[in-house]
Amino acid sequence: MQRKWLLGAVILWGGASMAFAEEERMKPVTDPLAKAECSECHMAFPAGFLPAGSWRKIIGDMDHHFGHNAHIEPDSQARILDYYVKNAGSGNGLSSLNPPLRITQLPWYIGHHRYALSAEAKQRVGSLVNCQGCHPKAANGIFEVD
């Protein structure tokens, strides 16, 4: 009897973690220009991570991009912004007057990254922005960790 319970618990746990794993995906950037330009300096972050208002602020001012001048030629900038706005996240629960600029400060992000990294991992990954440091398939929109 006890063994049956245990088996049931294992199956439930397995099912739950599978469902959890399936959620840890986000459609990757599909636009070739956006992918090429953004990934020159960092992974091209999926548009669904932030609402349209955030992307308008971020991509609208590439000359002041998180402390860097990441100037993009205006035609390309307009096309990339258009892609990001069309594929943006819903922004549920986020301020539309003051849209967030950093994915790493979103509540779900903080919740998922609350475990302290080892010194070795910090050194290897270098920055929170380096998704692929811990999620090797991030550029394909797959964020679960094996």
Binding site: C41, H42, G67, H68, G126, V129, N130
Partner: peptide, 8 residues
């Protein structure tokens, strides 16, 4: 090399 802010 490595971009210090993004780790890339």
């Amino acid at each position: 090399g490595r971009q210090p802010d993004t780790g890339k």
